[in-house]
């Protein structure tokens, strides 16, 4: 295996980790308006991800940085090509992060309500936009001879991309509901399970057609396997959720997220950004990669650090393993 193939794999892994982790963060954000009935319940939900959301978001930064280091051309075309959607995501991530930290810092109702709006909308929008961006990425976008994006915003707003956005939004919300059921206690936990059941079905309704469409559009045998795993995992997650096996349900919804992301990357490989204008202008793992020397160094750093990072992040989840209920929420400051 070439090093650039390994790095394609690693970047796919980073994105998968990002969507697995921040997927339920986004879902929780969206659920603060759907599932929570009052402020205390909203705080229960927010606090399930309180200690971990920041660490989860670093997966995105690392995916970005790794792409920059390992595939500069991919990074350049991707980030300049999806300019406006990425701008919107950035604005959302900025506001959302600040909202988590600042919401509880003043007692005024208006202050807290405004930040709660921010948490909802700035979770919903990126959850949608990431799906739209990845759908476009896999389908192919107009990339010119010079490797630059040659289209406009309208080229990104295809029905296929919009469906992709809806899929990630609903899938992440489902993933978030399953996570809420696993991490909360009391009345909200029961309701989270009920929401998960509904959202799981909704996910199936939008995700199955999308995955079939994506498979037909740019799939191959490997990606077909991922599609099958994603669909099966979703189905079993729903069954487990129904039976009240929350740990299993969460694990499986995570598998569904991971398999869906894996499907997109498997469909992509060996290209990293197919051109819809001329296949010869597509960016591939080989032609967008850094020099073998850079890849070698980064491989050492990645291979040593990733297991360590995953170990201490897992430990964080262990430290904060206790379920949270409304009775655990201290009075507002």
């Amino acid at each position: 295996m070439h090093l650039h193939d390994f790095w394609f794999l690693l970047i796919a892994f980073l994105w998968t980790g990002y969507f697995f982790l921040e997927g339920f963060d986004f879902g929780i954000g969206v659920l603060t308006k759907l599932l929570a009935r009052d402020r205390t319940e909203r705080r229960v939900l927010i606090n399930t991800i309180g200690p971990v959301w920041d660490g989860n978001e670093v997966w995105l930064i690392t995916a970005g940085g790794a792409t920059f280091a390992a595939f500069p051309d991919w990074y350049a075309t991707l980030f300049s090509g999806f300019y406006l959607p990425l701008l919107a995501i950035l604005v959302c991530l900025i506001l959302r992060g600040v909202a988590f930290e600042y919401r509880h810092k003043r007692p005024e109702d208006r202050w807290q309500r405004n930040w709660e709006h921010v948490i909802f909308w700035c979770s919903l929008l990126p959850a949608f936009l990431w799906g739209a961006i990845f759908a476009n990425l896999v389908h192919g976008v107009p990339i010119g001879r010079d490797g630059n994006y040659a289209g406009g915003l309208s080229d990104l707003l295809t029905p296929y991309a919009l469906l992709g956005g809806v899929v990630t939004l609903v899938l992440f919300t489902f993933h978030g509901a399953v996570f809420a059921a696993l991490k909360t206690d009391g009345d909200i936990r029961t309701r989270a399970r009920r929401y998960a059941a509904g959202l799981g079905l909704a996910t199936a309704v939008v995700a199955v057609p999308f995955l079939v469409w994506a498979q037909g559009d740019s799939g191959n045998v490997r990606s077909l396997v991922a599609v099958v795993i994603a669909v099966l995992a979703l189905a079993v997650a729903l069954i487990m959720n129904r039976r009240g096996r929350e740990g299993w349900a969460f694990g499986l919804s995570g598998v569904a997220v991971a398999a869906a992301v894996a499907m997109l990357f498997l469909a992509l490989f060996p290209e990293v950004m197919p051109s819809s204008l001329d296949p010869a202008w597509s960016l591939t793992a080989a032609n967008a990669a850094s020099s073998p020397y850079t890849l070698k160094i980064m491989t050492w750093v990645g291979v040593i650090m990733m297991p360590l990072i995953m170990a201490y992040q897992a430990w964080t989840y262990w430290v904060f393993r206790k379920r949270i209920g409304t009775r655990h929420i201290p009075a507002t400051h």
Partner: peptide, 9 residues
């Protein structure tokens, strides 16, 4: 890109 990725990791 290398120092940037190292920064993240």
């Amino acid at each position: 890109g290398a120092p940037l990725a190292m920064e993240a990791l």
